[in-house]
Design a protein around this nucleic acid. Structure first.
Length: 280
DNA sequence: ATACGCCCCTGGTGGC
DNA sequence: TGCCACCAGGGGCGTA
């Protein structure tokens, strides 16, 4: 669910609510999600001050006083939404972790499928965490260049679609934004990764950047579960050109005959959407 | 090293 | 209306 734009949007919303606040209460409602919560998670969060946030790929890092950071992944169905602590409504279903601030806000981590995760890592060694070590460049930072991307793709005989989903190649892309970026770059999702070099890589890098930046500006994409930290929906789903649009007219091809509409295929068990005429 | 299943889990949808 | 198969923004891990 949440890919880089959604995680970035949620993180900004959480920062607005939590940054500078002290957590007067934290509670876990089960032993873990994707993995068991770290020992004594609730106790270690309680009393800590939230110093700041950063994002790495699809992970959020919440820096705490005391030297630890909470490493949070939203999985497929995770959401983190703030609400007033005074509200008498029962906690939402599938809320696994709750944070309460000294100014009366509650942030709940709701995740029906429980593919999300929460861990603690020393702030000084965040990037050494096993889930972050080996992660590829941040696509919105200057270090993400055509040369770096083609080097990461060199020798890979897997389809470019699968390679871009690999977080070691580039951090933060998921099924939606890979589809949209490949469409914008005019590259077939079936093309072998190692053939994306030179001019093709030079087209792909700005395509990835542009789609991510536009999606962040739109507050992310809301399909089923995703909402921002304030409960608002994202809007980028209204601007999808190919994702989840099988059979719809291709935005580039006049029809009919055009390209016959957006195609859907399955690659490594996941849906891929593309235009078979303009994406080569 | 790379590639490919399998698996974790719940909920919504569409077909019969 | 009921049941069931299938699908969904992810990704770690074990095995060839």
């Amino acid at each position: 669910m949440p890919e880089l734009p959604e995680v970035e949007t949620v993180m900004r919303g959480l920062a607005a609510v939590l940054e500078g606040r002290t957590l007067v209460r934290a509670a876990t409602h089960r032993a873990g999600m994707r993995w068991p919560f770290p020992e004594g998670l609730a106790q270690r969060l309680t009393g800590a001050r939230v110093e700041g946030f950063r994002r790495r790929g699809k992970y959020m890092l919440m820096r705490l006083s005391g030297g630890d950071s909470a490493l949070i992944h939203l999985g497929m169905s995770g959401r983190m939404v703030a609400r007033p602590a005074r509200a008498n409504a029962p906690p939402p279903a599938h809320e696994h972790l709750l944070l309460e601030t000294d100014d009366g806000q509650v942030v709940g981590f709701v995740d029906p499928r429980r593919f999300g995760s929460v861990d603690l890592v020393p702030t000084a060694a965040e990037d050494a965490h096993r889930l972050l070590a080996g992660m590829g460049p941040e696509p919105l930072e200057a270090g993400f260049t055509a040369a770096i991307l083609s080097a990461a793709l060199a020798g890979r005989r897997t389809p470019i679609k699968a390679a871009l989903l690999d977080q070691r190649v580039v951090a933060g892309l998921g099924n939606i934004y890979v589809a949209e970026a490949l469409f914008r770059a005019g590259l077939s999702p079936r093309r072998l990764a190692h053939t994306v070099a030179g001019a093709r890589a030079a087209r792909l890098v700005p395509a990835i950047r542009a789609v991510l930046e536009e999606a962040i500006a739109a507050g992310g994409s809301s399909l089923r579960d995703y909402v921002q930290a304030d409960g608002e929906l994202g809007h980028f789903q209204d601007r999808f050109q190919v994702y989840d649009r099988a059979g719809a007219p291709c935005p580039l091809c006049p029809g009919p005959p055009g390209c016959g509409g957006v195609s859907r295929i399955v690659q490594s068990g996941r849906s891929t959407f593309f235009c078979a005429r303009t994406q080569r």
